[in-house]
Write a protein that binds this DNA or RNA. Structure first.
Lengths: 209, 209
DNA sequence: CCCCTTATGTACCAATAGGTAAGGAATTGG
DNA sequence: CCAATTCCTTACCTATTGGTACATAAGGGG
């Protein structure tokens, strides 16, 4: 059975990208349906037919964000050693947070850390997905201990938490307008920290200087 | 000339404290006048007469927050050495972010990192005040270099930025429900980082066991 | 060519947002 | 005791919020 009925006049993913950017810039509650539909180039009934409602649209936008804008995070996890994982992640993260062709910062935080009484689930959803990312990093560190590039006795959860804390701080800073170069400095300091905390030798000379 | 006219039926600062908590919990945009007035125990006209409008109320709440809830930050700056400044700040910060008698996280971030088109100035105001705090810390580090407890060639701005990045990450994490103990671990790792980055000897043994 | 399905545009809805007008209730100064 | 002043209460305002009913347009299947 092929397509039936009148076909969509807009591209699904393209519209989602525009919605993503509006949410990124204004947060979940700060993004009105008026601005969303304007940016997506569709009317409200089309939006509701295609995505359900505002919250579902947001969740789909966040999903697409994770897919397209955070691919670097998955790539980082594929690095061969824990150090390289963290280095790749923090550096690519800083780059992603400060792209000129994107809103500053990160949708997962700009989306909303606090919401009105009716929308607490939105903030909780974002927080949970960030912690899920942290969990993946911790799992990667568990593997690193098994593979010997993190010493026995390392605390994978604590290390992952620290890395995510730094990346979230960078996201806040980026949204405040802090420059890429300045965040790169901070990322290198954090890398310092990671090596010290994990009690591993630092494989690279200090780029800061 | 003494007080004239009918006296206020409510305590100014007490009402501000209640407003602060509502903003802390729901953010600027997520806090409705209905919830604010209910929490403050006053009617809208009283609110407008006493505080101007919603945004002015918010700014006053943030001011009071800085005064009362962030006193630890000023205390930390008074510590004798840069290391002690950072240790005191990060530890007290984690404690403040995870008080059971306060909303989790920090008003300066929960207040809003992204806002609707009409309220961009609110997010900018918060970002600016955070960066002002960073500036104070950087100045403190300049002094530390002069006084010799940070080595010559240290980068006060970069160090301050890193410390604030970590504290902001902790705020996000705390708002997500991460426990005090877990954030304390992260703070100790960050302290590790600071000593390494500042190339100073670490005065204390590692508490993480 | 007609029917069924699906999408679109317009126009609308109730609820809530932030904000205010107006009159009565306390208080001080005379 | 009255006037002036300040505050509180009730009721209301306009604009906007997220969300929908309904008629119409556009396509495929028989």
């Amino acid at each position: 059975m092929t397509q039936r009925g009148r076909p969509r006049a807009f591209d699904d993913e393209q519209a989602l990208d525009r919605a993503m950017e509006v949410f990124w810039r204004h947060g979940y509650e700060g993004a009105s349906l008026a601005e969303l539909t304007a940016a997506m180039g569709i009317n409200k009934p089309s939006l509701y037919a295609a995505y359900g409602n505002k919250e579902e649209l947001f969740r789909k936008a966040v999903g697409r964000y994770a897919e397209t804008e955070m691919a670097y995070a998955r790539d980082a996890l594929d690095q061969p050693t824990a150090y390289e994982v963290v280095a790749a992640f923090l550096r690519a993260n800083v780059a992603a947070l400060t792209r000129l062709d994107r809103p500053a910062g990160c949708l997962s935080i700009q989306g909303g850390t606090a919401c009105g009484t009716d929308n607490t689930n939105v903030a909780e959803f974002l927080a949970a997905s960030r912690l899920a990312g942290e969990r993946q990093l911790a799992d990667r560190f568990v593997r690193a201990v098994e593979e010997g590039d993190l010493p026995e006795g390392s605390d994978p959860e604590a290390l992952a938490r620290f890395v995510m804390v730094v990346s979230e701080g960078h996201a806040i800073h980026a949204a405040a307008g802090v420059s890429r170069a300045q965040l790169e400095q901070s990322a290198e300091i954090a890398l310092h920290a990671f090596t010290a905390a994990a009690r591993i030798e630092r494989p690279l000379p200090t780029p800061a200087g």
